[in-house]
Amino acid sequence: MTTTVYDVTTFPASVPATTDIGRVINEILAQVHAEQTSQTTRPGAVIYIPPGHYDLLTRVVIDISYVQIKGSGHGFQSLAIRDESDTTGWVDTLPGASHIRVLNTDGALEAFLVKRDASPSQAGRINSVEFRDFIIDGVEASKPYLPGSGKIGINVASDSDSVRIEGMGFVYLSTAMVLRGADAAWVTGNFAAECGSCLELTGASQVVRVTNNSLISAWAGACVRAEHAEGLLVEGNTLVWHGSVHLSECSRCSIASNKFVSSWPGMVWMEGACDENLITGNLFTRVDTESSNDNGHDDLFGMLQCSGTDNLVSSNLFSYRVDAGLRRPASAIPTIVLVKSGADNVIMGNHVCGTDDYRIVLDQSTTGTRIVHSVPQTAVEAYTQDYVCVPMP
């Protein structure tokens, strides 16, 4: 009977898993290739990583479907706090559980690369690859981590279907996760921190779910960045430090019930032709704990910036808590929402607190914007006559 379940510590590899877990997993995958040769008999494999510390010298390359790599816990520890502290009395100073240290000596940047050389039209898409319950540690890094070492935790570089990344930990990476051309991927229950960017959806993704994660990115990147996404769901996440979602030419996406905390503007940035997106029920808190670092956007950029057509921004709470002396440019009246371009966008039923001096700004090219029960008329700064405001009662 074909073997389908493997343990990296007991598989008869050419090196111990603690020495180079990447090489061990590649040898397991080579055996799966050798044993599963028919189109109709490819059940895939489960590769188990027991608790322990494992060095990864060789990038893992996955080019088959139905592979699950799973550990026994994300084992996260804040390495930035560790590296800025006196740890003499600490009980532990390394991440735990199933802990992989990315030390690539093969010249590669990724810890895990999911890629098939043949095009999807020739060989089909890669289906149902899963990463669960272990931590990928870039070992050393300095803020803002991007471009930094260039290390990537998981890079799904071929069009894929039903990829799952669940219960994972990521730390000290330039980018934790990259998914290209993802269809119906689930990214849920992960803890990614002290990374330049946490999740990048490149190419044209559709119906990806990003839910219940804790994502902590530095000012040079974003917690979630998506381009040409259709139907993306970002829900129930905690997005901190530069708590941000950057959508570039995305449509019919839902950004709902998230907690955003950021020291910089641009907490939701809809860039280019972003149409029919729903931004609802989120808590946005703008603070300034690192005014010496600059992400290129000042307080006129907007906590939320909207471009495109028929977008709805509703039922959000915007809490702006930056002292006047720390605003950029100096003494600026902060922009809460900037409608930069597009038509028929709706801002409805939102609440602004933390400051009495703020603006909703409509740029000159915008048309048909409706602002309903969100702010007083005096808070609207419109460079167009083509809008309707129903002020707070």
Rank of each mutant, 00 (worst) to 15 (best):
T3A: 14
F11E: 10
A13P: 02
P16R: 09
T18Q: 12
T19Q: 14
D20L: 03
I28C: 14
I28M: 11
T37Q: 13
P43C: 07
I47D: 07
Y48K: 12
G52A: 02
D55F: 03
R59I: 03
V61N: 13
V61S: 12
S65Y: 05
S65H: 04
Y66I: 01
I69M: 03
L79K: 11
A80T: 08
A80Q: 09
I81E: 10
P95S: 00
G96L: 09
I100W: 02
R101T: 06
L103R: 15
D106C: 12
L109V: 08
L109W: 11
F112I: 11
L113R: 15
V114N: 03
K115A: 04
S119K: 13
S121Y: 13
A123K: 15
R125C: 12
I126T: 06
V129F: 09
R132A: 10
R132T: 08
E140F: 08
A141S: 11
S142W: 00
K143L: 12
Y145C: 04
S149H: 04
I152K: 08
V156R: 10
A157T: 02
S160E: 12
S160G: 12
I165Y: 00
E166Y: 06
V171L: 03
R180E: 14
D183H: 13
W186Q: 12
V187N: 07
G189N: 14
N190E: 01
F191W: 11
L201T: 11
G203V: 00
S205F: 05
Q206I: 09
G221C: 04
R225Q: 11
E227K: 07
A229E: 04
E230S: 08
L233W: 04
L233C: 05
L239E: 00
V240S: 10
H242G: 06
V245L: 10
L247T: 03
E249T: 11
E249Y: 07
R252Y: 06
A256C: 06
P265F: 03
M267N: 11
E271M: 02
C274E: 08
T285S: 12
T285V: 14
R286N: 01
E290F: 04
F301K: 09
G302W: 00
M303C: 04
M303V: 14
L304E: 06
Q305R: 15
V313Y: 09
Y320M: 03
Y320W: 10
A324H: 00
G325F: 06
R328W: 01
A332F: 02
I336Q: 01
V339T: 09
K340G: 14
G342C: 07
G349A: 02
G349R: 07
V352H: 02
V361Q: 08
L362V: 07
L362K: 07
T367S: 15
P376C: 03
P376Q: 11
T378M: 08
E381Q: 11
C389I: 15
P391M: 08
P391L: 09
M392E: 10
